[in-house]
Write a protein that binds this DNA or RNA. Structure first.
Length: 116
DNA sequence: CATCTGACGACCG
DNA sequence: GCGGTCGCCAGAT
């Protein structure tokens, strides 16, 4: 399969940010939707700088099973992403792919100083 | 060709 | 908020 577009987009996810399988599927118009994107990520080649850990489930939930779950969690925390329970705060870290690298926190509603 | 499984997501109780 | 069901599609057996 040609998952290249998916991998390429995942590589564009900024450090300390996350996106979801569903959004990737929608932006890339993947036939099978989120499910297939997940399948693609599961088989993503290693050692190619693909930040697969920045891809989470809908709502910022970490749905991956062990042993990758721990790894993803550790990697995200390393990038400064606060993980609470089994999910991350989408209002702070969600990143929408595509569009010239612009676009970012569509739901960021904080009025205090945000750290970008 | 029939089934099962999986790094998903929306719904429902 | 949690757990179960169903729909989705691509491999594996």
């Amino acid at each position: 399969m040609a998952w290249e577009p998916i991998y390429r987009l995942v590589k564009k996810i900024p450090r300390g940010r996350v996106t979801t399988y569903g959004d990737l599927a929608r932006v890339l118009r993947v036939r099978g939707g989120a499910r297939v994107v997940g399948y693609a990520m599961a088989g993503c080649p290693d050692g190619q700088g693909i930040p697969w850990h920045r891809v989470v489930g809908a709502g910022g939930r970490l749905i991956i099973n062990e042993p990758h779950a721990s790894k993803q969690r550790r990697l995200l925390e390393t990038e400064g992403v606060i993980i609470r329970g089994n999910r991350v705060d989408m209002s702070l870290y969600f990143w929408l792919p595509g569009r010239k690298g612009a676009a970012a926190r569509p739901r960021n509603r904080n009025k205090s100083g945000s750290r970008d």
